[in-house]
Structures are given as C-alpha cells and as structure tokens.
C-alpha cells in the first residue's frame, strides 16, 4: 500500500486548548490507506479530547485533519466508530441495527439489504437477524456493532477500547475476527487502547502518546508476523518496549 502517494488521513499540528489549558500539543501523523494503526497512551492522557478532535466534536484550536486530502466533513465522508459501550439500539433487531448506518446515509434499500446480509454472514449472525439486542450475549452484541461499522464501508474506522471489559478468551477471539475482517476489506483503522498488549497484538504501527499535554512520544513499526503469539520473545520484547515508554504506575 506504499505506492499510494497520498495518505488516507493526515493530521497536521493538531492543537487543542481549553481556555489556557493545553491538552493536545502539536500532534502530526499520517495514516496510510488500509493501515491498522494503534494508539496507546498513559491513563489520563488526552485520549478523549484527541478522539473528539479527530471526529470534529471539538474544533481544534490549531492545526487540521485531512481525510483523502480534504478537511473532514462528516456529511460527505464516512467515518465509523466503535466504542466500548455496545451502543446498539435496543428497539431494533440485529438486522436493523446492522443496517442502521446505511439507513442514515440514505443508501438505497436493496443495496443496503445486500450489504447487511453480507456482513451478517461474515460475523456469523445470519441466524440471529431477527433477535433483539437484549437477547444476545456480549460477544454477539460486539459483533453486531462491528458488522454495523464495516457495513457502511467506512473511509476510516475509529475504535476506542472496544474490548476493555471482556473476558480474555473472548477478547482474543474478537481481536482475531477484527483482524480478519480488516484484512478482507482493507479498511483503514485507528484503534485506541490503554492495553499495551492489545496494541502490540493488533497494530501495524503503534503510536505512543505522552501524558497531558498530549503529544506523540514515539511511533513504532510492528511487523511481527500474524497470527501473533503473545508469549513469543519478539512479542514480549516489543511489549516491554512500549510499556517502558508509557509506564507511570
């Protein structure tokens, strides 16, 4: 994907102040199309502000964010989010939840239906399409959310610690599923987490943030072969390296 001249996302000198309080300090980085970027920082680093600036909930004090060379415009461009809360609509069925994003974007009915079917099949929920969220387990809900995000075929997928509270085996399982979905679709993913191991397990590149005022401490390329083994010496070495950059506790 290196032949792609223009990066998918360009963050240029992103700065955010609340009054006199500097929260984001001159952050610049690129994300290539189809890249899986993990961002990890210490607890209490301006993670939320960072995310809200990326999604334009906050107007940055200085700097800009370009998506495909254009300033981010949520009406034209398609950014999908996955947060820790499952954020499914309890009054919609699985199928309707997956189609929700498409519906909002005004995708034509038959095309939307085809996409919903496709992604329900990919995450293995076709059998449960008529179920309501409160009839599903945590992992199924998480899959509904993932299917909903991927179904909109986003230009950029932002994930904010989606697996924070899950059992470890389930987390492994969903992480592997995420990787395979990403490999299949070539979606550009920014994945933010506090969990260093998770960042090392998932990311092609890891952006390590400093504490407030937040800036980029280091960017680390991660070309460990997949599927990655958390107990392998190379993995442990990289995990330790990132831990040393972050450790405050």
């Amino acid at each position: 994907m290196q032949e792609n001249k223009q990066p998918k996302v360009q963050v240029r000198n992103l700065t955010k102040k609340f009054g006199d309080l500097l929260v984001l300090d001159n952050i610049s980085f690129d994300v290539q199309a189809g890249e899986f970027l993990c961002i990890v920082g210490p607890t209490g680093c301006g993670k939320t502000t960072f995310l809200n600036s990326l999604t334009k909930l906050y107007e940055p004090t200085a700097g800009e964010i370009l998506l495909d060379g254009q300033p981010v415009d949520l009406k034209k461009q398609n950014i999908a989010y996955i947060f820790q809360e499952y954020s499914t609509m309890p009054w919609l069925t699985v199928e309707e939840n997956v189609g929700f994003g498409l519906d909002i974007k005004g995708v034509e009915k038959s095309k939307a239906q085809a996409l919903v079917n496709e992604y329900l099949d990919i995450v293995g929920l076709t059998k449960y399409r008529k179920y309501y969220p409160d009839q599903l387990s945590a992992s199924m809900l998480q899959r509904v959310v993932i299917a909903r995000a991927f179904a909109t075929q986003p230009d950029l997928l932002l994930m904010d610690e989606p697996y924070g509270q899950l059992d470890i085996q389930l987390r492994y399982h969903l992480e592997d599923e995420l990787i395979s979905l990403w490999q299949r679709t070539g979606t550009t993913v920014i994945f933010i987490t506090h969990n260093i191991e998770e960042a090392v397990y998932l990311g092609q590149r890891i952006l390590v943030l400093t504490n407030k005022p937040t800036s980029i401490k280091q960017a680390i390329d991660n070309d460990l072969p997949r599927p990655r083994d958390i107990a392998s010496p190379d993995f442990v070495k990289l995990r330790n390296e990132v831990t040393d950059l972050i450790k405050w506790w």
Binding site: K17, F18, G19, L57, Y58, E59, T61
Partner: peptide, 8 residues
C-alpha cells in the same frame, strides 16, 4: 456538546 472555548 457545548464547547466552552468557541465563545470567548
């Protein structure tokens, strides 16, 4: 969301 810095 009210952004306290936009209206100074």
């Amino acid at each position: 969301m009210i952004d306290s810095t936009t209206n100074s």
